[in-house]
């Protein structure tokens, strides 16, 4: 009989890696994002084409289309209108929507509940119906096709986008902070500006960002008000596309995307995008 002395062997078990199902799912998700980003990437690519037509393979790279859109007055003018409307309507939506949302959260009555639903409703009403109805309404008020009409129309939609995030953020903030400030002698105005506003600022910024992005691209709302001084960019782009099919559309679309990215960047620099998605 022999005895074999062995040191206890350490057997390392293979950890279970991701299964086939998981790998397939990951591949699918990759494909999904390719689908999501492909048409956007292709437009950016085309905007640098040296050809006057859209052909593949592209004959060469050039920035000529960016010069072309700067020279084409309707593009620049409507871009300016779009940016102005987006910013002003977000501002008006904030001034109107934020105090209303603050009241609605704390009031906790049936009236406040109904009001909240009304305030959020413009998101769910088809924009084309809203634009159409407002055109006749504003014409009756002799505002008709004008910058002010466009601003009013976009503000109707800005209110729900801004109040929606403010409602969500403010609901999560206990009344204790405001009460603590009140005991410390703060008036209602002081509480609002020194306590409430700083606490709900992320909600306001997130909502305003959404509102700006939606406004920049809201063709169904805007095209009813497409006059000389009040055509927004999507309206001009649509009419341009119906006549010509050249890469300048790609260039102006890319510029618009850059503006949106800058807006996001500004908000991100102030608050961080993670806070926005949390709201």
């Amino acid at each position: 009989m022999t005895t074999i002395v062995t040191t206890p062997q350490v057997i390392e078990r293979r950890q279970k890696g991701p299964g086939w199902g998981q790998v397939l799912l990951a591949a699918y998700v990759l494909l999904f994002f390719a689908f999501l980003l492909l048409p956007i990437a292709i437009v950016v690519l085309v905007s640098f084409s040296s050809s006057s037509f859209i052909v593949f393979p592209m004959p060469g790279f050039s920035t000529q289309w960016y010069y072309r859109i700067v020279e084409y007055r309707p593009f620049m003018q409507s871009l300016l209108v779009s940016v102005e409307i987006a910013l002003l309507s977000a501002l008006a939506g904030t001034v109107l929507g934020v105090p209303a949302a603050i009241w609605a959260v704390r009031a906790n009555t049936n009236a406040a509940q109904v009001f909240t639903n009304v305030m959020l409703a413009p998101i769910s009403v088809p924009a084309i119906l809203l634009g159409f109805s407002l055109l006749y309404m504003l014409s009756a008020l002799t505002l008709g096709v004008s910058f002010l009409s466009l601003l009013i129309t976009h503000t109707v939609v800005a209110i729900p986008y801004i109040s929606r995030t403010v409602l969500a953020v403010y609901r999560g903030i206990p009344a204790d902070y405001e009460e603590a400030a009140a005991v410390l002698g703060a008036s209602r105005a002081q509480i609002f500006f020194q306590i409430t506003m700083p606490l709900i600022k992320p909600g306001i910024f997130a909502g305003a960002l959404f509102s700006v992005l939606i406004s920049l691209d809201n063709l169904p709302l805007s095209f009813f008000f497409g006059g000389a001084s009040s055509s927004s960019l999507p309206v001009v782009m649509l009419s341009y596309m119906q006549n010509q099919f050249d890469p300048s559309i790609a260039a102006i679309a890319t510029v618009q995307m850059l503006i949106a990215i800058v807006a996001l960047g500004i908000v991100n620099a102030i608050y961080g995008v993670d806070k926005l998605t949390a709201a």
Binding site: P174, D176, Y177, E179, A180, A181, A182, V183, L184, G185, A186, S187, I195, P198, L199
Partner: peptide, 18 residues
């Protein structure tokens, strides 16, 4: 409350986070 001249400590302190 702001004109009663009281002091109050809340259960979760409610210190202003900002």
């Amino acid at each position: 409350p702001n004109r009663r001249g009281l002091g109050m400590v809340f259960q979760n302190y409610s210190l202003f986070p900002h």
